[in-house]
């Protein structure tokens, strides 16, 4: 169970997140859509303190953190309960695909090396990259790098997986394989919070869709409600634009 209340973030004078309230059930797949610069990515980044929220409460499983006075250990606690998939993959450039996945298992979860390696290989097999275990990121295509990036987050067995526009930096030819892998992650009943511009994918994978505008969740509902019967004029305009 994930619970967010009153989450607020300001960059300088500009409020980027304005009192966000959001509950996510275990195994629920929530997709956030909305125009650029409306705080979608910032919301994800505030949940694990890559950006530090100014105020609000974040509960993930048994850990509740008051953003305004979060201590170091609490921040690490949130990060260890979440897996993050970056738009630009952000694989560790000095480590192989397998080492990228093992890294958190060894240094953070303190698993024995052999066990971590076995789990990394199992995850690589799931991502379809078993034969790339010893390849460095520089030698992988964008699609392969992002699959390793997802694998790195999968291996954590995190309570919540965060996807920050995972296909936006990809050449069109690689988008399909990354979305396929995300579908497989979804089948495992993994709780997911996804920011994406892939509307077809959102409709297909989401239990619930949030539409954000100007740092607020303006409207939310099932894919059918959001895409077929949008209420808010801003959502209607947005959908008209993206369906072009």
């Amino acid at each position: 169970m994930i619970s967010i209340t009153g989450l607020t973030k300001t960059f300088g004078e500009t409020p980027v997140l304005d009192q966000i309230d959001l509950d996510i059930a275990e195994g629920e797949r929530v997709v956030i859509i909305g125009p650029s610069g409306t705080g979608k990515s910032t919301l994800l980044r505030c949940l694990n303190f890559l950006d530090r929220p100014d105020a609000g409460k974040i509960t993930i499983g048994d850990l509740t953190v008051d953003a305004a006075r979060a201590r170091k250990a609490e921040i690490l606690g949130l990060r260890r309960r979440t897996g993050f998939v970056f738009q630009n993959y952000a694989l560790f450039a000095n480590k192989t695909a397998q080492e990228n996945i093992m890294e958190a298992l060894v240094t953070v979860q303190r698993l024995p090396k052999a066990e971590a390696a076995a789990r990394a290989q199992a995850v690589l097999a799931e991502t379809g990259l078993a034969d790339k275990a010893n390849s460095y990121p520089a030698a992988l295509s964008g699609g392969q790098q992002q699959r390793v990036g997802i694998g790195r987050a999968m291996a954590l067995n995190a309570e919540l997986m965060l996807f920050d526009e995972p296909t936006s930096a990809l050449d069109p030819e690689w988008v399909g394989e990354v979305l396929d892998l995300m579908r497989r992650v979804a089948e495992q009943k993994q709780t997911m919070l996804i920011v994406t511009h892939e509307m077809q994918f959102a409709r297909e994978i989401a239990d619930r869709i949030l539409f954000m505008h100007s740092g607020k969740i303006v409207e939310q509902g099932t894919p059918a409600e959001i895409f077929d019967a949008p209420q808010d004029p801003r959502l209607q305009r947005f959908l008209a634009r993206v369906s072009g």
């Binding site: 890559l50 260890r80 993959y89």
Partner: peptide, 30 residues
């Protein structure tokens, strides 16, 4: 060293020391 390397290390819950010793310094060494 690219900013994304810091963020990726932070996102998996590494401490500052782990991040420096295992991710940033090896890349800076090159």
């Amino acid at each position: 060293v690219d900013r994304s390397q810091w963020e990726a290390a932070q996102s998996i819950g590494m401490t500052q020391w782990q991040l420096m010793l295992r991710i940033i310094l090896p890349q800076a060494a090159r």
